[in-house]
Write a protein that binds this DNA or RNA. Structure first.
Length: 1133
RNA sequence: AGAUCCGUAGCUCAGCCUGGUUAGAGCACUACACUGAUAAUGUAGGGGUCAGCAGUUCAAAUCUGCUCGGGUCUACCA
């Protein structure tokens, strides 16, 4: 006999995977999958670089499965898919990790440890877990090229970043400006949001809060307020009331912000402190906070200092937008914040002291009017910038380091603020004698009739996690990329990107683009890409370096021009490492001959990763051609949390520098949650270890589970039981189907040597499964092309389980072990083989191991793919349209439904399937249906063990029918009359239905109007057959003749007997082909049954002798339909 | 605070785009059956205010609005 198909010894996915992995390594399967496509159209994929300073988690497995399956699929579709790996190696997480490890803080860097040493530690830390990552990459079957990855800390990589930055600089898109950042005066440093999110930084504190009164200026905008004051008003002053918990910011006030659609009121009343008559403006929703209802329209004339109840009356109501642009007087004018000397000096054309409108205003607290100091609040800064009310921050073009913020970096007021000058705004020095300047400001306002309410207010406020002192939001200088300049273009290009799911692109990403702000690149850390900008001391001259060569030229030039020791360590070889501290030692020279130093900033690590399309190839310094062919990407995929991270930075840089998208399709996968829907975190201890999972259940089962359980973009509740189910149900079934095939193919020596039997010569069921298979290929291809792997996987699951295993194989079993090796049997083998071979190619992208194992086993014998080592080197199956026969698939569905119904009827009357029954009755509603049923009649009969099928013609009066409206058709036609018609139809008699069927239409009278019903507008189905047991599903009805005649009973006995003997054969461990001899005692009716069907029985059990005797002293006791027998079964020969 | 996704059986998910009258499947549970591949499978059973409210419509799980609950991102140094 020829070589045999390898049979598995059990379904052990992890073991199979080990074996396949070894083969892949040995045969360089991945490399070949790429090289075999040399010259083919490239499919460009970008690998988002992971940071290898942490352990890989299960959430990495899902996005990498997604990436891998798309790349494998595209390879099989004939593209060449190169996958260059990469590592993200800069950034705060790495630095914090190192700090923790060394037990130091940011301040210690440069003091306790040199920057050089520190960065060396970071460099060592970044690839700490690279081995683990390589390991998981291998074990999960992720094909990516890790031999030549891009690494973001490499000089070549950084050089490309510099080039990009210099391109931006040349276009005027890189600029220095001021932004409001959390700042700790006590520690003298800015804080990252990460630091601000440390536990315990937000504390409840009691601060002095004040409702300040800003006196309006009478002009066009405010005129209507003054007009509303009334004749009897004893005051002609109108005040805007604004509330703050940080009175120290009041001297810096430059605007008041209101909500455009919020209702405001002008209220006539008295100042509760000075008892002077005043008119104040606040949000109407907040009246209750300051005025008692009893005081409304109270006694104004009788009000004195002693009156407790404040009288008040609303003079007019208006919207916030009605006072947009209104002016008011500066609240606390001093020398240092005077308009002429300070504000205008700080900001050209500033227009301060106006009413602004913005959506962040609410009426939950305060007055509905927000005191706006652009220096000390991000929202304030934003709205202030929008309206151009100016800043105190002074960035002088020619002396940019001079700042004129009213509070200095130590947290104290500057000079020129009268009695508040040089006082700390909070007690930063732990001064025991500290007098709260906020209280003093409030007192001053009270005295000046400029405060309406002063009270202690408890709220949550961020504190510096190192000093425990409150944080200030403070303007600090930073470098920005002017992304807003090309916002429209970015929005426009985004519309050409295929987002999966689309909502992320339109919604989350689209909105993000709409509300884009300039990209703050600056980071004041140590381990990262340095900003390549050098400036002269006075800031008047600066240069942005775009390459190492340019820098080295600058180094030499500076040395020549400036002389002395300048750059002496870099003259010989140039710069060797583009990191701190080396770059900071470089002095360049300006055109006017002045020394220039590098600005201290590093850049956002997201720029590193967003620049990978260029930097991974060291473009434009090398690989120009390679770059051209691999930009933009056809496909990228990462977690949805990257939407505003990597997806954004890729898009931004591509738009800015190349006016192009960076990727054509992007799939954003959701999060992996634990089985209870909680985010996995080390703290909760619910993290799933991917190594253990893969070792235990196998990568294939894990991958299959991750992909088919939910759409990749939905969050996934990860549950190990789900993987077990996948293993058992999908892989178990596929495995069994293969084992079944191998078992018999080995017996018969089938190796696909015979010529391919044309479809038309194959039996109905073969043509059906092949039609189904080709439909499946179409479905899967469509889903995969649409980046819907979940649907692809589910479709295959359904096919393997319902069609292939539980219908085709089950119904065809006999064909494989009965009869000669010819004709029908070969057809069966060829059919099943084709199904298996096609299915493993379909699932190869998702479950690359098991599919390859089965493929290799099959191809080893048949060599249908000559010389092909792996399923991953084959082409993806292409549907054969000619094999698809919809009508065939439809009638097989009919057969399955009919069988299911008949089995259900058998169950109802408790007649087991081995007991043959005589007849089923099926009403055929139309000739087409009858024709369809007739073609599958034999299958149904065999499946449910019934001898004949009888059809009832539509015009019989035997069965009763039911009628219901075809809602889709009738709804459109009738509209509101639908209900009445529906009721009328439900009252139809059998005669009415018959008349409608006969005449094809029916005249109904609804509310006096006549409605003509067409036959096509109703659905008629059979309901019942009097005297028969019936069941129905949809339009299919079956009735079963449940009479068991003696003849049928005898046959049932015989079948039951066969079953018992087969069990004995199996238990005795006989081979499938062993011939046997049987001696049996049979009493009562059993003797007749057995002798009558002796021939049938012998054929079934492969017996050469079946002897019935009266007595047996030994033998196995068997029970056939409640009759006890004894039997001796012996192997012949 | 804003944006976005999600909410259907005890659990995991279909169905929603394109509205149609008994809302499905698998898992789990129970009983019976089938099996000369099966770790399967079939049949039957229990299990649902389709998160809630309002609207549009003859008709809403499906379309619209609001509310609630959960997740994520952003809110100026990942």
């Amino acid at each position: 006999m020829a070589a045999t198909y390898r049979e598995f010894t059990g379904l052990n996915l992890p073991a199979t995977e080990q074996e396949i992995l070894a083969k892949w390594t040995e045969q360089q399967a991945f490399e070949k999958s790429v090289s075999l496509r040399e010259g083919a159209t490239p499919f460009v994929f970008y690998e988002g670089p992971p940071s290898a300073n942490g352990m890989p988690g299960i959430h990495h497995v899902i996005s990498r499965t997604l990436k891998d399956l798309v790349c494998r699929y595209k390879t099989m579709k004939g593209f060449q898919v190169k996958r260059k790996g990469g590592w993200d190696t800069h950034g705060l997480p790495i630095e914090l990790g190192v700090e923790k490890e060394l037990g130091i803080t940011k301040e210690d860097i440069g003091k306790k440890i040199s920057i050089e040493e520190y960065n060396q530690k970071c460099r060592e830390a970044v690839l700490r877990y690279k081995d683990k990552w390589d390991d998981i990459t291998r074990k999960m079957g992720y094909w990516v090229d890790l031999n030549d990855p891009y690494i973001t800390f490499k000089n070549e990589y950084i050089e490309t970043l510099w080039w990009l930055l210099s391109e931006l600089y040349k276009k005027g898109l890189l600029y220095e400006s001021v932004s409001i950042q959390p700042y700790s005066p006590a520690a003298g440093t800015g804080l990252s949001s990460h630091e601000l999110n440390q536990p315990g930084t937000y504390k409840d504190v009691k601060d002095t809060s004040v409702v300040a009164m800003f006196k309006t200026v009478k002009d066009e905008k405010t005129g209507f307020l003054y007009n509303a004051l009334g004749q009897d008003n004893t005051s002609d002053e109108v005040f805007f009331m604004a509330w703050t918990t940080t009175p120290w910011t009041l001297p810096s006030n430059l605007g008041l912000t209101v909500g455009g659609n919020i209702d405001y009121v002008l209220v006539k009343t008295f100042n509760p402190y000075t008892h002077l008559p005043v008119n104040v403006v606040l949000a109407s929703a907040l009246l209750g906070k300051y005025f008692k209802p009893e005081g409304e329209n109270g006694d104004f004339g009788g009000y004195t200092a002693e009156t407790k109840l404040l009288p008040w009356t609303v003079l007019t109501t208006f919207k916030g937008k009605d006072i947009e642009g209104a002016s008011y007087e500066q609240l606390l004018p001093f020398e240092a914040n005077s308009f002429e000397d300070s504000i205008q000096y700080s900001t050209e054309n500033a227009k301060p002291f106006r009413i602004l409108v913005d959506s962040f205003v609410t009426t939950e607290d305060g007055t509905g009017i927000v005191h706006t100091a652009p220096d000390f609040g991000a929202d304030d800064f934003k709205v202030g910038t929008k309206y151009g009310i100016g800043y105190f921050t002074h960035v002088n073009k020619y002396d940019k380091r001079e700042k004129l913020v009213l509070v200095d970096l130590e947290g104290k007021f500057v000079n020129g603020l009268g009695e508040f000058s040089n006082r700390f705004v909070k007690n930063y020095k732990d001064d025991k004698a500290y007098a709260d300047v906020n209280v003093d400001i409030s007192v001053k306002l009270k005295k000046e009739n400029r405060a309406f309410k002063v009270e202690k207010y408890e709220h949550s406020y961020p504190h510096c996690w190192r000093t425990d002192k409150p944080v200030l939001y403070y303007p600090l200088s930073a470098w920005f990329i002017k992304t807003t300049a090309i916002k429209d273009r970015m929005v426009q290009l985004n519309k050409t990107i295929n987002w999966k799911p689309a909502s992320t692109g339109e919604g989350r990403f689209g909105n993000w683009l709409e509300n884009m702000v300039d990209w703050n690149l600056s980071r004041s850390r140590f381990w990262g890409t340095p900003l390549p900008v050098w400036q002269t001391e006075d800031g008047r001259e600066e240069v942005c370096i775009g390459s190492i060569e340019e820098l080295n030229a600058g180094i030499r030039k500076a040395s020549e021009v400036l002389g002395g020791d300048v750059n002496k360590n870099y003259l010989h070889e140039g710069i060797l490492d583009l990191h701190k501290p080396y770059v900071d030692e470089i002095i360049l020279v300006s055109p006017s001959g002045k020394p220039m130093k590098r600005v201290p900033d590093l850049i956002d690590v997201w720029f590193d990763s967003g620049a990978m399309p260029y930097a991974q190839w060291h473009f434009p310094f090398e690989n120009k051609e390679t770059f051209k062919q691999s930009f933009p990407a056809d496909f990228i995929a990462e977690g949805v949390d990257q939407t505003r991270g990597w997806f954004y930075t890729l898009h931004a840089i591509a738009c800015l520098v190349f006016d192009s998208v960076a990727y054509k399709t992007v799939v954003s996968n959701g999060l992996v949650l634990d089985k209870n829907g909680n985010k996995m975190s080390k703290r909760l201890g619910n993290v799933v270890n991917p190594f253990e999972t893969i070792e235990k259940f196998g990568a294939d089962a894990t991958r299959w589970y991750l992909i088919t359980n939910a759409s990749p973009w939905d969050n996934l509740k990860f549950d190990l039981d789900g993987i077990k189910e996948v293993q058992r149900k999908f892989f178990g079934t596929l495995y069994n189907t293969y084992q079944f095939f191998a078992l018999y193919a080995n017996v018969d020596g089938f190796s696909f040597q015979e010529k391919y039997i044309p479809l038309e010569e194959r039996p109905e069921i073969d043509r059906w499964i092949l039609s189904s298979l080709n439909t499946l290929v179409k479905t899967v291809t469509g889903s995969m092309d649409d980046y819907e792997p979940t649907q692809a996987g589910r479709a295959v699951e359904d096919f393997v389980d319902e069609h292939l295993s539980n219908w085709y194989v089950r119904l065809c079993r006999r064909r494989f072990w009965k009869g000669e090796y010819s004709g029908d049997k070969i057809s069966a083998y060829q059919t099943l083989y084709e199904c298996l071979e096609t299915v493993v190619r379909l699932v190869a992208p998702i479950s690359p191991f098991f599919s390859d194992a089965v493929f290799r086993n099959l191809n080893a014998i048949t060599n249908r793919f000559p010389g092909v080592e792996s399923v991953h080197h084959t082409d993806f199956p292409v549907a054969n349209e000619k094999a698809i026969d919809e009508s065939l698939e439809e009638r097989m569905q009919l057969a399955q439904d009919a069988s299911s119904l008949i089995l259900s009827l058998r169950k109802k009357v408790n007649i087991k399937v081995r007991q043959p029954l005589q007849k089923v009755l099926i009403p055929a509603l139309n000739p087409k249906m009858k024709e369809q049923l007739e073609k599958v009649e034999d299958l149904v009969k065999a499946e449910v063990n019934v001898k004949e099928v009888e059809y009832l013609n539509p015009d019989n009066t035997f069965i009763s029918k039911k009628i219901k409206p075809n809602f889709v058709a009738l709804g459109k036609k009738l509209g509101p009359k639908m209900k009445a018609v529906s009721t009328a139809l439900s009252q139809f008699s059998q005669e009415d239905i018959a008349r409608l069927e006969k005449e094809g239409q029916y005249n109904l009278s609804i509310d006096g109007e006549s409605v003509i019903l067409q036959i096509t507008e109703v659905e008629i189905s059979s309901e019942d057959i009097p005297g028969w047991t019936v069941a129905n599903k949809g339009s299919l009805t079956v009735a079963l003749d449940v009479t068991v005649t003696p003849q049928l009973e005898a046959e049932g006995n015989a079948r039951e007997f066969v079953n018992r003997i087969q069990k004995i054969r199996k238990e005795s461990g006989f081979e499938l082909t062993d011939r046997i001899e049987v001696i049996v005692t049979a009493a009562n009716g059993m003797k007749e049954s057995i002798s009558q069907f002796k021939e049938y029985i012998c054929a079934e059990i492969l017996a050469d002798k079946l002897e019935i005797v009266a007595e047996l002293s030994d033998g196995i006791e068997i029970e056939v339909n409640d009759v006890l027998l004894k039997a001796i079964v012996s192997k012949k020969g």
